[in-house]
């Protein structure tokens, strides 16, 4: 059975509830894509949520206590390599940024967050995620086609 069209799942993670409140509102009110937005301020809960699967786009702060954004990136990519990950960061070391790139981060946003930049990056992330999803689904179907006798 074909899956029903569902809104893409976006997980927003920041240990500052002020940022969560603002970005959730910006995305819900103005994003071109109708995302299902989940938000978490506890990165440990976020890691558990990612492990459950179904996250299409992860937008996460980089510097958080206990579990940082890089760990969430690695977790998300392990769970589903097609998940797009956007970082938000106020300042970062070269080491952290290179590590983010190496582990497949899609892009980053500098804080303070510019709304237009956020919306533009989300649209691009969504398009990339959809292309990968379609391509991967195509290969899966290809393997499961019943060959004529």
């Amino acid at each position: 059975m074909e899956p029903q069209n569902q809104n893409p799942k976006l997980l927003l993670v920041d240990d500052d509830p002020n940022m969560i409140r603002l970005l959730t509102s910006v995305i819900s009110c103005t994003a071109e894509v109708d995302f299902d937005v989940e938000s978490l301020t506890d990165p440990v809960c976020a890691r558990n949520r990612i492990e459950e699967g179904g996250v299409d786009i992860l937008v996460t702060d980089l510097e958080m206590p206990a579990v940082n954004g890089l760990e969430l990136l690695r977790c998300a990519k392990r769970r589903n390599a097609a998940t797009q990950v956007l970082f938000m960061t106020g300042h970062s070391t070269q080491e952290a940024l290179l590590s983010a790139l190496e582990h497949g981060a899609s892009d980053y946003l500098l804080k303070p967050v510019n709304q237009l930049e956020l919306l533009s990056l989300l649209r691009h992330a969504y398009e990339r995620q959809q292309r990968w999803k379609k391509a991967l689904l195509g290969t899966w179907r290809g393997r499961h086609v019943t060959m004529p006798e």
């Binding site: 500052d16 940022m19 603002l22 206590p65 106020g90 804080k111 303070p112 967050v113």
Partner: peptide, 17 residues
């Protein structure tokens, strides 16, 4: 430091550059 870090990120995002 953490509170300063959060303020740095959030205040500008809320339009208090």
């Amino acid at each position: 430091r953490q509170k300063a870090h959060q303020l740095k990120g959030a205040a500008g995002s809320y339009g208090f550059d």
